[in-house]
Write a protein that binds this DNA or RNA. Structure first.
Length: 283
DNA sequence: ATGGGGGCCTGCCGGC
DNA sequence: TGCCGGCAGGCCCCCA
């Protein structure tokens, strides 16, 4: 599921039920996801007020009253689900335990937040609030694509002399942090750039054009999440999933939707990942 | 330093 | 109906 827009939508959903509240009880049902959980994670969450919930790239940061922040990554299959009655006390309306429900937080108001991750590529860790830049998972991240530190000059410089396909360059979280396979495909389609083109061989003005396009693609997806979901959740309480249509991602064999283009969307494999694009109008 | 490939896990889907 | 291969939106690590 999760690239930047989906993570942002999950963040907003978590914020709506956790910010200002207290984690009355934390249950950790296995010792690890991709890596071991930090020592005593359940105890370090229990009783903690939630000050704020932030996002860095595809990571969620939950700031606790203790001065620690819980770092959460959804990996490929991580999901957050909200259940419970905010006015009751740990009511019966919680769903029965489901396979791969690994972590559960019961908020003091009766809301339950459940983290489910079938493939366990997700991660959680605790770090001192404000020490994000020192954390190994965050230290090497490039600029936020929606922030000022990401701009034309920065991207042109990052692409200079890069011999890797632009697809790989945009997936490189050190260049820009938060893009994944879907939104890279969509941004390259809008920019009319082939995913196979070497990053260092693209003209400066075309590289520059990627900056507003990346911002637009991500912003539109975040807005779609905000408008198509109630409190950022779907009917079953799961956060962050929303119906979103893509111009090229998953559209193999479909006619290109660019005005006047008669091409067909193709799927190729680059570095073991699918790339979708129109070879006729993306050069 | 850079670029490419393997591996981590489980679930789902299409084809035979 | 059942089995099997291929595929999945991430990211770290190792190797050349």
């Amino acid at each position: 599921m999760p690239e930047l827009p989906e993570v942002e939508t999950v963040r907003r959903g978590l914020a709506s039920v956790m910010e200002g509240g207290t984690i009355a009880r934390a249950e950790v049902r296995r010792p690890d996801l991709r890596w071991p959980f930090p020592d005593g994670m359940a105890a370090r969450l229990t009783g903690q007020g939630v000050r704020a919930i932030r996002r860095r790239s595809k990571y969620i940061l939950i700031d606790l009253a203790s001065g620690e922040s819980l770092l959460v990554h959804l990996g490929m299959s991580g999901r957050m689900t909200i259940s419970g009655d905010p006015l009751g006390k740990f009511v019966h309306d919680h769903p029965t335990r489901v396979a791969h429900d690994h972590v559960v937080w019961d908020m003091a108001d009766g809301t339950r937040v459940t983290f489910n991750d079938a493939r366990r590529f997700g991660a959680m860790d605790l770090l001192p609030t404000g020490d994000e830049t020192a954390h190994p998972l965050l230290a090497k991240l490039g600029p936020e694509p929606l922030g000022n530190a990401f701009n034309e000059e920065v991207l042109i410089k990052a692409f200079q002399n890069r011999n890797t396909p632009v697809k790989s360059a945009l997936l490189d979280q050190r260049i820009v942090a938060g893009l994944g396979n879907i939104y890279v495909c969509e941004a390259l389609f809008r920019a009319g750039i082939s995913p196979t083109r070497k990053a260092g061989k693209i003209g400066k003005s075309r590289v520059a054009s990627l900056v507003p396009i990346i911002r637009d693609v991500l912003t539109e997806a975040i807005e779609a999440g905000g408008s198509s979901l109630r409190d950022y959740r779907q009917a079953d309480g799961e956060l962050g999933y929303f119906q979103h249509s893509f111009a090229v991602y998953g559209q193999e064999g479909q006619p290109c939707t660019r005005d006047g283009c008669t091409g067909t969307v193709k799927r190729i494999v680059q570095s073991g990942r699918s790339s979708f694009y129109c070879a006729q109008c993306q050069r």
